[in-house]
Simulated assay, not measured.
Amino acid sequence: MGQEFYEQIFNKQQKLEAVPSNKEITKWALQVIHMLYPEQTGKTFADVDALKAEFTLLENELYHIMEVTKACNDCDNRKRAARFFEDLPRLYQILNTDIQAIFNGDPAARSEFEVVRTYPGFYAISLYRLAHSLYMDDVPLIPRILTEYAHSKTGIDIHPAAKIGEYFYIDHGTGIVIGESCTIGSHVKLYQGVTLGALSVDKSMANTKRHPTVEDNVVIYSGATILGGETIIGHNSIIGGNVWLTKSLPPNSRVYHTPNHRILKSLTRRIFGDKK
């Protein structure tokens, strides 16, 4: 490597803003979640005043993160941070509905404590809810950092701009993709490997509705792929595993993928000793 290359990298470093690491930003978000759900860490406080003081510290930390990430040159980041924490009671209530949806919908769930402590679906949803609140206040970068962190930990990829209603249930979750302009109603259940994506990834579509709308009380089973901004899955529908959809469905639809199976008798004989 020549001197010119070293100087190019060095000059780039000199222009770098003092942005907190992704680890620092996600640590802040996880601390907020742990405050809401002490089940995750077991941390408690001596009294309400001590709890309130901790939330104040987290609000100040968010303000600092916004300031040093240059979230907006002419925005009042102090007010932005305050708005996020003013919205926290609403987020908490919505997250509680997500916990109920997972607990009520999964026969394997033994308690809400177990859902909060162990379920990757709730982990991804909780970081998404925080990220979405920031995104809706036009905070750049930070929301995407949070949802990509959840993606790296769980395999669940939810864009912070996606709009998702209450009682959202992700079962297993690995491989789920929910695109930027996706709209999901309430009481929706997704299984692993579901893609709610775009028909095209052309850059010219950046500011358009590229991803599907899923109405209330829809179940989408594993491996299903639903594409397109004009695609609407009507309420109370069930989408079976491995289904591929690019067109809308009316309410109360049932769509299943029917594979063709062939039984190889000769192979059956070799494995099971079939004499017939």
Rank of each mutant, 00 (worst) to 15 (best):
G2H: 05
G2V: 01
F5Y: 14
F5A: 13
Y6S: 12
N11E: 14
Q13L: 14
E17S: 15
E17C: 11
V19E: 13
V19C: 10
P20S: 14
N22S: 13
K23C: 06
I25G: 04
A29D: 05
V32F: 10
I33L: 15
H34M: 06
L36S: 10
L36R: 06
L36N: 09
Y37N: 02
P38F: 08
E39I: 06
G42T: 00
A46T: 12
D47K: 02
A50W: 00
A53I: 03
N60R: 11
L62Q: 12
Y63K: 15
H64A: 14
I65G: 01
D74A: 13
D74Y: 11
D74Q: 13
R83D: 11
L88Y: 09
R90N: 10
L91Q: 05
L91R: 00
Y92I: 00
Y92W: 03
Q93P: 00
I94F: 00
I94K: 06
A101S: 10
D106F: 02
A108Y: 09
S111T: 09
S111F: 06
S111H: 03
V115F: 04
V115Y: 05
V116G: 00
R117C: 09
G121C: 06
I125C: 02
Y128D: 05
L130P: 07
S133K: 05
S133H: 01
L134K: 02
L134P: 08
D137F: 01
D138Q: 09
V139Y: 03
V139Q: 03
P140D: 10
P143Q: 10
T147H: 03
T154R: 02
T154H: 04
P160Y: 10
K163S: 10
T174P: 07
V177M: 08
S181K: 04
H187F: 13
V188A: 12
L190V: 13
G197Y: 03
A198P: 04
L199I: 08
S200D: 07
D202C: 02
S204E: 09
N207T: 03
R210N: 02
P212S: 05
T213F: 04
T213M: 03
D216E: 09
D216Q: 07
Y221S: 07
A224H: 06
A224N: 08
T225M: 10
G228Q: 07
G228C: 08
E230H: 11
G234H: 07
W244A: 04
W244V: 07
L245H: 01
P251A: 15
N252I: 03
S253D: 08
T258G: 00
R262V: 14
R262W: 08
L264Q: 10
S266T: 15
T268N: 13
T268G: 07
R269I: 06
R270W: 06
D274T: 12
